[in-house]
Design a protein around this nucleic acid. Sequence first.
DNA 1: ACTATTATTTGAACGCGTTCAATTTCTGGA
DNA 2: TCCAGAAATTGAACGCGTTCAAATAATAGT
Lengths: 224, 224
Amino acid sequence: MTTAGSRTRKGEQTKARIVEAALELFRESGYDDTTMRAVAQNAGVSLGNAYYYFKSKEHLLHAYYARIHAAHAEAAAPALENESDLHKRLLGVLKTKLEVIEPFHRFSGLLFRTAADPKSPLNPFHEDSAPARQEGTQLFARVLEGSRVKIPKDIAQKVPHLLWVYSMGIVLFWLHDDSKDRARTHALVEQSSELVVKMIKMLSNPLLRPLRKSALKLLNEIDV
Amino acid sequence: MTTAGSRTRKGEQTKARIVEAALELFRESGYDDTTMRAVAQNAGVSLGNAYYYFKSKEHLLHAYYARIHAAHAEAAAPALENESDLHKRLLGVLKTKLEVIEPFHRFSGLLFRTAADPKSPLNPFHEDSAPARQEGTQLFARVLEGSRVKIPKDIAQKVPHLLWVYSMGIVLFWLHDDSKDRARTHALVEQSSELVVKMIKMLSNPLLRPLRKSALKLLNEIDV
DNA sequence: ACTATTATTTGAACGCGTTCAATTTCTGGA
DNA sequence: TCCAGAAATTGAACGCGTTCAAATAATAGT
């Protein structure tokens, strides 16, 4: 055990040094071109030592995920401050999302690889991601609450989560988008958000009640 | 050039031998545990020679995909034979898809993890997957053609591809589905297909023309 | 049949992520 | 202060996917 007062054993400093070295190299050269040997050297540590603290190269990215998440939550706040138009609110959140994640586009391979692996704790649908999922859903709940749009009661509970899934779809598209300045994704965000808002507003239409009920039944049965 | 009559140079036989060796080993031990050296040896060929015919290990899996798709196309044919109801046609195709891919669910972590990487040639949205993508789209074009549902001309060209993307979404859900007998995915297929058909039928409604136009504009701008 | 060109095949080599037995450094109790 | 055990650190080694210069076999033109 470590001394009573000291909060960090020596190892935690080393671990921090390795993380910082890794993040710097990832930022600089991307994930694939960053070798564990380079990370170790950059941290002033032996190769084997890096593996003493991180089970694998991918595990080094957990720190990154946390940073992305925090950055988006912070960046999105102003867009919700003084705005009551639902479309503008939604658009603001999605645009800041794109801004925040843009520097990480070069990681897309890894991001989506882990994100798509059902067994990976980084997977947004994985059990371990429940907190992140919940935070994301809450963000979209706030987007809705701050607007003056009325949501039918029966589906009100589902919509925020559906918006989060929608945003995951945006990210999925973004991952594959190699257009200049991510132009295609920006077009997608601007226009699909408009569509989404239109549909949300339409949902109160009595004509669409059957459709709404079908959708609700579906959501309940697949346990989303 | 090869002689007039002979349809296959020698190389194509070698290539076939390598594919067969690979598929056998994949089936036996999964993707990750099958080494290129084992494939080469199993095919009675040198390691380098395998790379002469296949740019990478992942390229060998295209053959696997091709077989799955062929199996699906064959299995789905009866469901399209004597049926004109769009929902039943769509449902038939999706259900047979689930049946065909079910044996691979246990490999999904290994197999589809790499497939999800935007840079991976296995990714369904990757350039190298264009043929598979096209075949898939054609299958859904057939689903539509055989039914009596009228699709508005402006979007007619887009719908088959959208249905294919929809089916990819189903597969993505399936990957994460650990419910007994894949019950959640089956619920999703049954009910979402109903919804999809409803929406397709609704699309001709003049009231929805603006929505249709917006969607079309979106699709064109993001180049889908 | 000879030759130039192209297609095929080889195996060594490279750099990578990862593992591990061995070594050194730290730490808390006698 | 000393020492046993735990924590931290090392670097060599392994197996992997991939590359490549060189060697060999097949082919087409003369």
